[in-house]
């Protein structure tokens, strides 16, 4: 089970609200490569993983992704504080505002609501670990794209932190893949599925 800690993983301190930034950064909450999908991907994949160490990596990375959801939500909250109707209209935030006001709801930058189809649980450790490596890389690219579009250093700072975490997670899933390859038939990784067929 889980216990909540009343702190962010890394501080979020934004002086100037900017709903245009919020409109793009929200993709890392509810978009196709966002933190919600990341948490659901790893935390759901771990149950049928056959090796305790890989379960540990999925549990701990998945739990960290929940903390990243909270950081993105904190960024969105601070970017959309005290907006005037004029700012809302001018920034293009009006299309989100009309349905959610300044509430935090997981959608992509294009406004598509979060979907479980953004992640996969195949029940085969090689399929799932490759999915996880690709997911971390895609999330890093999304953070790169956000950094191309955002100038405010207050916003860039936590985004850079989250981008770096994607790189570290990619490396840890590299460890998991190596561990898995060491444990199955080295002449043929795909001879059977250890999540279903047993070792």
């Amino acid at each position: 089970m889980w216990a909540y800690e009343k702190k962010l993983q890394y501080p979020v301190r934004i002086k100037n609200p900017n709903p245009t930034y919020a409109k793009i950064i929200i993709s890392q909450l509810g978009g196709p490569d966002g933190e919600l999908g990341a948490a659901m991907r790893y935390l759901n994949q771990r149950y049928t993983m056959p090796y305790g160490d890989i379960i540990g990596i999925l549990t701990d990375v998945g739990t960290e992704e929940l903390a990243h959801m909270e950081m993105i939500a904190a960024i969105l909250y601070q970017l959309t504080k005290n907006l005037s109707p004029e700012e809302i209209k001018r920034s293009g935030f009006d299309t989100y505002f009309v349905d959610h006001t300044a509430g935090i709801y997981p959608v992509s930058a294009a406004g598509v609501p979060f979907s479980a189809s953004y992640f996969a649980v195949k029940g085969d450790l090689f399929a799932d670990l490759h999915e996880d490596l690709a997911a971390e890389q895609k999330a890093r690219v999304t953070y790169d794209n956000i950094l191309r579009l955002v100038d405010d250093p207050d916003v860039r700072d936590p985004i850079k932190y989250l981008r770096q975490r994607e790189i570290n997670h990619f490396q840890r899933f590299g460890d998991a893949l190596r561990i898995a390859q060491d444990k199955v038939n080295p002449k043929n990784y795909y001879a059977y599925n250890p999540e279903f067929d047993g070792p």
């Binding site: 089970m1 216990a3 771990r46 149950y47 305790g52 160490d53 379960i55 540990g56 549990t59």
Partner: peptide, 21 residues
């Protein structure tokens, strides 16, 4: 029970099975 309470300086028991499910 949490990853802050590994009490063995020789080994990382957090990953030991069984996991709770």
């Amino acid at each position: 029970l949490t990853f802050c309470e590994n009490r063995d300086s020789e080994d990382w028991h957090w990953i030991d099975r069984p996991w709770p499910w």
